[in-house]
Design a protein around this nucleic acid. Sequence first.
DNA 1: TCTGGGGTCCTAGGACCC
DNA 2: TCTGGGGTCCTAGGACCC
Length: 422
Amino acid sequence: MVTPIDHRYTGIVPTYFHVDMDAFFVSVEELFDPSLKGKPVVVGGRPNERGVVSAASYAARKFGVHSAMPLRTAYSLCPQAIFVDGHPERYREYSHKVHDVLTGFSPLVEMASIDEAYLDITGTERLYGPPLRAAHILHERMKKATNLNCSIGIAASRLVAKISSDQAKPNGILWVVPGQEAAYLAPLDVRKVPGVGKVTEKNLHAYGIRKVGDLSRLDEDFLEQRFGKWGLALAGKSRGLDAGGWFDSEIGADEGPKSISHEHTYGEDTADREKLESTLARLSEMVGRRLREHKLEARTIQLKLRYSDFSTITRAHSVPRATQLDTEIFEEVRDLFRRNWKPGAKVRLLGVHVSGWAEGGEQMDLLGEERHQKWKQTLAAADRMRDRFGESAVSLGGSLRGTFRERTHENPAGLPGKKPKE
DNA sequence: TCTGGGGTCCTAGGACCC
DNA sequence: TCTGGGGTCCTAGGACCC
């Protein structure tokens, strides 16, 4: 475990790298199928499926295809593109390789997503030389170890490092020299600032604010009045400051997840109650499994329900005793579903989301505790089966057919007692 | 254009407590 | 009896990111 450096106390101007892999998913696909190289490739699914583009090759981008675009739209823009489903396991594997390269370079590494990371390389001059030279060394190492290209932004704040890595793409390095942040940012569109999306951009445009320079010239009070806390943060960002200002960007603080969720969009909307509830059972299993992997227990369980017209509701319930059990999650989410679904209304998407990790977990009576432990062991065994034989090897789908006992006063968790007779 | 899936953070109102 | 204020938890929704 490496202790992050808090530069507020060292008084040294820090140096951050933002390392961003170029067209990551597409590049990994090319490693496994070199014939894809140079061609328009779209990762995300088949062109006639419901779904969006996860990643597009640079050749596909020339046709206007970009990530988050509906697959059908991508197809109409570029019918000759090669559409692939993608291989999440491969991306995770290569993400680990990337992480290994980075930690071999500097101990202060924070993966920001599957394909990007922040590094604190403050004080490594004697080892790697000045920042640009250090970045070149890292760039070479990355290519050698993974056969993948990356782009590197260098700056005294994480924010500016991130923006400059984007400007460096593809396969480039860009250093914003300390002191030049505001000048560098001023001509950029406000949309380039991480956190400014479609909505905020539109709101800013309404005030005639189009460039980061326009933002930085405004009064902080004005921004706070109109955009609240977020406006104040924007004022700082427009000058290149991270959330807490300069020297407030610890790298390497590794916290676990704050929530876990799984959701499913149907190929065709459905109002079939059994189908819907069995989807909830499957999603509950997936969520329970992840909870056990992370050794977490959740108190708040949430259902997400999207109808054909895309209107979406979420309904949550917090239970007194935290759980990591598929059955308990499923029963909660099924209750929420039954109370909120308008029977007959066609459903596009269902989701199961858990959060609110328990600190200690409350005591159960002895009998309950014993059954609880047995049930935990059963699920752990099922997890191992899935590891060996695949996801479909074991299912609690049987819960829909009454394998599990209903909740009763004696059995509040609805845990199975003795094995039901066949 | 007909809109995934996995996350984080923020806002805002109401309940409840002191 | 017209009535405070702060803190925390819960719930719902939404913007945003990759």
